[in-house]
Amino acid sequence: MNKRLILLRTLTRKMGNLARLRDTQPPKQGWIAAVRQALGMTAKQLAERVGLSQPRIAKMELNENNLKISTMKKIAAGLDCDFVYGFVPKNSLQETINRQARKKVEAILSNVNTNMALEDQLADDPHILTDMADELIAKNIRRIWD
């Protein structure tokens, strides 16, 4: 089996688990402060647990969207949590591939049809688009992103 297809299926399954988190809104004060406060921990205590200063923790709580992943993992560990991150596709990965391949083929066919119209030989078979997109995906998927 194609290595890319195995990866696609594996990621699709894993991302499916993350999809239900898509609409999860962070607490108003942010995850770090919310979890820390729920645990009854002060910012100073968290700072000591992760080897940072209390003012640094305060800054992180105000600006947690701009922290490095490694920093978030460190803070999570100090809160006895796991930091989880991932990508949740808007559509399935296969749908994204199919849509992009069709877009690429439409551009190719547009050029072909411009030239063929001059010779009254338009490529207007409705299956051409689908067949070409499938072939592009199967033989050289990287081309769909050019």
Rank of each mutant, 00 (worst) to 15 (best):
D82R: 02
G86P: 13
I32L: 09
I97D: 10
E106Y: 08
N115A: 15
S92D: 11
A101Y: 00
M72T: 05
L79Q: 01
A19L: 11
K68V: 06
N140G: 13
A107I: 12
I57K: 00
D23A: 07
T130R: 01
K14G: 10
L39I: 04
V35R: 04
K73Y: 06
E106I: 08
A77W: 06
M41D: 00
S92T: 15
D146I: 12
T12I: 09
A77D: 10
M60F: 11
E119F: 10
I57N: 00
I75K: 00
L62V: 03
A38Y: 04
N66P: 05
N111W: 14
D124M: 14
P27C: 11
G86L: 14
Q45F: 02
A133E: 02
I32K: 02
N63T: 08
A107H: 13
I141F: 08
P55W: 11
K68H: 13
P126L: 03
Q100M: 12
V105A: 09
K59C: 10
L136T: 02
P89K: 07
N17D: 15
K44Q: 07
I32P: 02
L67Y: 05
N17V: 14
N111I: 13
C81M: 12
D23I: 03
S53E: 10
D125I: 06
A123Y: 09
K139Q: 11
K68G: 09
L46F: 04
D131L: 11
L109S: 05
L46S: 03
L52A: 10
K59I: 11
G86S: 15
R99C: 08
L136Q: 02
G16Y: 05
V88A: 14
L18V: 11
D146N: 13
F87W: 13
T130F: 04
D23R: 06
K139L: 07
R22H: 06
K74H: 09
Q94N: 15
G16T: 06
L5F: 03
A101H: 01
A33Q: 07
L62H: 09
A76T: 08
I108A: 10
S70W: 01
R13V: 14
S110P: 00
N140W: 11
T42A: 01
L52Y: 04
L8W: 12
I144Q: 03
R143E: 10
V50F: 00
P89M: 08
E48C: 03
L129N: 07
T24Q: 15
G40E: 05
Q45Y: 02
N66L: 12
C81Q: 11
I75L: 09
M132S: 05
H127P: 01
A107D: 15
A123K: 05
A38L: 06
L11P: 01
W145D: 13
K59E: 13
A107P: 06
L46V: 01
I75E: 00
K104A: 06
D80G: 03
A58Y: 04
G86H: 13
G30A: 03
T24A: 13
M132T: 00
T42P: 00
L122H: 11
T24M: 14
E95V: 12
T12K: 06
R20P: 00
F87G: 15
Q29L: 11
N63K: 10
N2I: 07
M60W: 02
Q37T: 12
T71M: 01
K74V: 03
V112W: 04
A58K: 04
R9V: 11
H127L: 14
